[in-house]
């Protein structure tokens, strides 16, 4: 139920989190370890699907050469599924971003 993420998938996740936050960030290993243990499988796999979905969307002709930030901005006002995908990444990005302040 809970297969480990490949390194390239984590890199993708970091890139999408950076796009949503509007700043360069890398998902912290300590955050990812806690998240991986605590997240229920629907969230774990849902997030993975969001990352793959966003990546695949960039291959579509209408999104070709669109930056990640431009894509999430567009999808943030898009249809229900697109909005949920952006929101899922945004929640994870904020979890990581604000958790980093605390020892």
């Amino acid at each position: 139920m809970r297969a480990r993420w490949f390194a390239f998938e984590l890199a993708w996740l970091s890139a999408w989190c950076s796009a949503v936050l509007g700043s360069e960030r890398v998902i912290r290993p300590s955050f990812w370890t806690t998240f991986s243990k605590a997240a229920p499988w629907p969230l774990f796999w849902g997030l993975r699907a969001c990352v793959w979905g966003l990546n695949l969307a960039r291959l579509l002709p209408q999104n070709w050469r669109r930056t990640r930030e431009a894509l999430v901005t567009r999808w943030n006002g898009g249809n229900y599924l697109q909005r949920q995908m952006v929101m899922t990444v945004k929640v994870v990005a904020c979890f990581d971003y604000f958790d980093a302040d605390e020892p």
Binding site: F31, T34, F35, K37, A38, F95, D96, F98, D99, D101, E102
Partner: peptide, 10 residues
């Protein structure tokens, strides 16, 4: 912890 993420996780 103050972190919502830690609270959600625990």
């Amino acid at each position: 912890k103050e972190s919502t993420f830690q609270a959600f996780a625990n």
